[in-house]
Write a protein that binds this DNA or RNA. Sequence first.
DNA 1: CTCCAAACTGACTCATGAGTCAGTGTTGCC
DNA 2: GGCAACACTGACTCATGAGTCAGTTTGGAG
Lengths: 210, 210
Amino acid sequence: MAKDRTQLRREEILEAAVEQFTARGIAGTRAADVAKSLGVSNGLIFYHFESKNQLIADAFAFVVDHGLQALWKIVEDDRPPLERMGRALSLYGPDEEATGWRIWLDAWSASLRNDSLRETIVRLNDAWEEAFMALVRDGVESGVFSLTDPELAVTAIIGIMDGTAVQAVVRGQTDRMRSIRRAAARAVTEVLGLTETDKALLLESMSQAK
Amino acid sequence: MAKDRTQLRREEILEAAVEQFTARGIAGTRAADVAKSLGVSNGLIFYHFESKNQLIADAFAFVVDHGLQALWKIVEDDRPPLERMGRALSLYGPDEEATGWRIWLDAWSASLRNDSLRETIVRLNDAWEEAFMALVRDGVESGVFSLTDPELAVTAIIGIMDGTAVQAVVRGQTDRMRSIRRAAARAVTEVLGLTETDKALLLESMSQAK
DNA sequence: CTCCAAACTGACTCATGAGTCAGTGTTGCC
DNA sequence: GGCAACACTGACTCATGAGTCAGTTTGGAG
């Protein structure tokens, strides 16, 4: 099932759109920006997508699908739970520039007026929850994590990560932000109920680049 | 120091603007909407505010100032720390409809392109951190909270609350949301290291309306 | 009461950007 | 190699909404 010409072009446009959204924000991106960045005509965008709103929704569905593929590769790996958790957390959490997260603040806001985008976001959130839940259960089963209520732990972890991301985007790279980031990482190890050795290990793997 | 005519009008406009932002979103609100809701002319908005961006920034500064006043009233009260924490959390956290939070998702996103708004948001975040820090210290001092690192606890609490708010806005009032909300509230009691009795008390006071 | 400055009006300009469409180029199938 | 069908172009329309401005009203100081 080789992707046909149209399919390839659509994906090219989606990738370019995401790039532009990241750089200019969703509202700040004109259809023409996407076209220009690909060296194609304005009209082509609307040849392949019904409207700008649809392009936005499709673009997010596209990144979400790719992100989730990467996530499941980590979760279903046969490495020890602690390492998988570290990898999942650094995939999820904001990097130093928080570039990847800017787009999500935009998406949250845009989802209030774009139902299909909202559905994509909920799908993403559900998947991450499920993934963290699987990881937490594995860790508890193998005795590395020590906690009583996985759901509570997962909610806390996701909340801490989202919250840190928001701060990271709004505050940028400041001293205050660096200390928040550290505190957040340590709070997660706390939630998981790790031994001191394992805390250090997790922090180590979280601070590594993807 | 009676507020003069101009000052009053400015505040009227700011209030109306916030109302409109909540209902239509920041990007979806036209200067004309604000004017219309007050029954004044379009031009008056620009007589009192230099630009729409400035109106946005000033409107947020306005709600922030009011919110923070309410916050400090709670923090500096002479009630026991547990009760003050409960009150602060229910002031901060999203209510059932999460209406109050929609505007913040918009604000985060808009702050990426509005520096003065960004500064307001950082000021707000700093103030909440300071407030929670004070509450946590008081609670630890009086022996009600049992935790080793206040900064870590505050980062976790704010993260959990922000994260829950994001979910609440995106998911709306669903069953999944209700369970997330419960898990989040309990995760906070966990972070504070409360006794079973105090956990129940805090949950009680958090679930009460403002 | 008079008069001036400040508050206010609303019709206007102007830039912007989504979406259209008539026409051109390209592919690959018969 | 001819001819659909599809991919693509780019100049165009059109709605929208921020911001302007010349003129009008108002309120309060003298």
